[in-house]
Design a binder for these strands. Structure first.
Lengths: 217, 217, 217, 217
DNA sequence: AATGAATGAGCCTTCATTCAT
DNA sequence: GATGAATGAAGGCTCATTCAT
């Protein structure tokens, strides 16, 4: 076939592989399954990607690409106060990475990589997580006293991020603990983002937990 | 052989299975591997546990038992202030579930269950997570205004817990982001517990982030 | 245990094994299944019978014993005409060996042996089939011209017997060919015996097929 | 390899499987055995037939195809009297299905299906037995009084067929009863066919058992 | 360039049997 | 004498991969 068609097939396979890898993980996914879903020959994976592992790797990278293109980072004017920026940042993270119960395969797949990194994770951190994290630290810097040690800055960043990722990573367990009803009522993206922002801002001394009662509650 | 030996072999297999399941997950683990590590016959798993799945289930439950026995919950006198209790609680959680880079297999295995629950997770939540979480909520109640809605209480609890679990769940990714040196210097159990307690207490209005500079920093 | 109890267990196992061997055959039957059905230890079969094969053998022999005890051969006065005797004989064979769709396990098991003889078959022929067959030949002798060659006598005997066995051996296929309804209406023991007797007697020149219309038709 | 080779391998496996299944039955046969006999890979059976069961099914159907191609049905002119037709029919059945002691695997395998039908038996009856049986009934109709009830027609058909099948189904037992010498002398195909025809025709009122002494006796 | 055919390695499971008690 | 524990061998099947075309 022509090069164009070849590239098509390649892309087809990746897009078929994504949701399956995301749902079942590397080991539980079979090449047959992927090729069938892609309408491609059983030998295609080995032909286009050499082996299953490299297909997985490329699929992870493609997931991060797609996610970045779909949910752009927020832009702020110079006067936007840091508290506002933090709210916006958390909101974006929730949109990009969490979305309880309806996360697209790209998110689920990247999640797998954070939890059990393979080769692909280094690329993912470099291209995806590191830039986000630096942006968060820049916001925090405006709220922290000068001279805050580096590792403290970092851990404060982790304190914010961890609250966000928790709902994605422990989605199933959270659902088991709170029940489906409560999940539907109080764990939508907006609500979680507002809660995390309020908790974190209170920690940073901006307002306190009793302020501005959660609009979603 | 006698019953004693029988129980021995059973326990032997579980103890051999634990670290392997913890490291590679259910699918990537073979019973051949387990039996070899346990010095047992290939048919042993099916003999003692009926099938691979039930061995996995029992291994997860055994992990939680062992962990509870090894790290007991803190006991407080009635006058202990809630801030002190929260510090103690976070410390215990870190000890029980985190311990960067040297977590025993029990912790890793339970971690897997939270992230990708199987049947065993329900038992785990009932026997392990729920009791911990209720204890945490009782502490928070002393610091929260009366009438705080239930779901807000719960999410505040998650905000505390998520910071702890983060270092366990994203262990590998955290290591990739901060590097091995910094990890060794600033991410030991005590240090993480102190940071998380300070951040959370600040959010609850007890002290602020600038107070009592982290002794481990 | 005492000898009495031991003999009990032995007998128990045979009686549990009978129906299972009869239904599924030697290979498809497992020792576990038998021991479970007999409420005996898994090692019992090997202990009491040395191995699975000998248990099978003994079970087959036991089946023939039981069958002979349950359905005695007919007795005739000296004046009973041979045609009457043949009818009685056929009737007994049908009772002993056929009974479409409700044959006891003994019959099914012996049937297996005829079709695919093992060691046990020699005993079965000597103790069970041969005596029946000799009795049939004695009846036929009264209807055949003197000097009928031996192999012709034998084959005539086979012609009678084969019609009877057919309904047992090909039970399932017959059911497939005629359908369940017709089976229930026209293939009961009495009906089959009457048909076979009429056909055979006609062949031997006693009456013809149009005579004495089948009472069951 | 090319398609031709593929079909070759497929056919090869069926031809290797045939005799083994025929000899040992479905359960006692292993696919390892078959693949070895076919000079094929162990995975071949699953590749070409999905599983052991479907290989068995296809092998049974192939057996019937081969047998039909090898022994064609007799053709009669319109004037051929029914007695002559019946003789021809019995002869063909014996040729197709019996052939004491040298039956090809196709015959043995089909025999297994009649005795212990699996899924394949329905196909076998539809494609093989039913057409034969209808042909037999057509012949009998010419010898029976008009108005003979359907089930009687059928049972008369069975009386003829059962005599033929007996020598195939009970081959081993017959050999045990008459001994090898007599078997060789009086149980060849021609001889059995002649005997069965004479017995059956006598029953139908065409000639009697004393007529036309068996040329083979 | 792309694919249908074929395969070797390995998986989980089951079974009849044995052995120590 | 009788049994629970344990095992070696084998079975059917699946999978990622390779090879000839």
């Amino acid at each position: 076939m022509a090069t164009v068609a070849a590239e098509d097939t390649r892309a087809h396979i990746i897009e078929a592989a994504g949701p399956i890898f995301a749902e079942k993980g590397f080991h539980a996914t079979t090449i047959r399954e992927i090729c069938q879903a892609a309408g491609a020959n059983l030998a295609s994976v080995n032909y286009y990607f050499r082996d299953k592992e490299r297909l997985y790797h490329e699929t992870v990278l493609r997931a991060s690409e797609m996610r970045r293109a779909e949910v752009p980072l927020p832009q702020w004017s110079q006067e936007t106060p840091p508290a506002e920026r933090l709210k916006g940042f958390i909101h974006t993270i929730i949109e990009r990475m969490v979305l309880m119960r309806k996360a697209p395969w790209q998110v689920k797949l990247m999640n797998r990589e954070i939890l059990q990194p393979t080769e692909a994770c280094r690329d993912l951190i470099r291209e995806y997580f590191r830039p986000h994290f630096e942006m968060l630290l820049a916001i925090l810097d405006e709220m922290l006293p000068a001279g805050t040690p580096d590792h403290t800055r970092t851990q404060l960043g982790f304190s914010v991020v961890s609250q966000c990722l928790f709902y994605r990573m422990c989605e199933e367990s959270v659902a088991m603990m709170v029940g489906e009803e409560e999940l539907a009522a109080h764990y939508q993206g907006e609500q979680l983002a507002a809660h995390i922002a309020r908790f974190s801002l209170a920690a940073f001394g901006h307002g306190n937990l009793a302020d501005s009662p959660n609009t979603a509650s």
